[in-house]
Computed example of a mutant assay.
Amino acid sequence: MSCIGNCIDHACIKSFHSMIKRELVYLEKFKTREQAIRRIFEYIEVWYNRERIHSSKGIMSEYENL
């Protein structure tokens, strides 16, 4: 990461937020906040993160090592 306030630090997450809004949030109408949370969680864990990029290289994140 570079110095504080550098917009490049947030490029990946901004891209992800843009994609999830385009592919899910703007296409569905949620009746409750809980429904939205559940659906977004499902999207990320089931659809988006089906196969982790680093897993194909045999590298595990610190969270997967726990």
Rank of each mutant, 00 (worst) to 15 (best):
V25I: 13
I59M: 06
K31C: 02
E42Y: 01
I40P: 00
H10R: 15
H17Y: 04
E64P: 08
C12H: 11
S2N: 14
Y43I: 00
Y63N: 14
R22H: 11
I20C: 08
E28K: 12
I53K: 04
M60Q: 13
V25Q: 08
E64S: 06
F30I: 07
E51I: 04
G5Q: 04
S56H: 08
E64C: 03
K31R: 04
G58M: 06
Y26N: 15
W47P: 02
G5R: 03
N65H: 13
K29M: 06
I4T: 14
G5L: 04
I53E: 02
L27H: 12
A11C: 10
A11D: 10
E45D: 12
F16V: 07
I44G: 05
L27S: 12
H10K: 15
F16P: 00
K14P: 03
D9S: 15
M60K: 14
R22V: 06
H54Y: 04
W47G: 07
F41G: 12
Y26M: 13
T32H: 06
N6L: 10
I37G: 13
A36R: 04
Y63F: 08
E51G: 05
I44S: 03
R52P: 05
I20V: 07
G58S: 10
W47Y: 14
I44L: 06
S56Y: 05
E42Q: 11
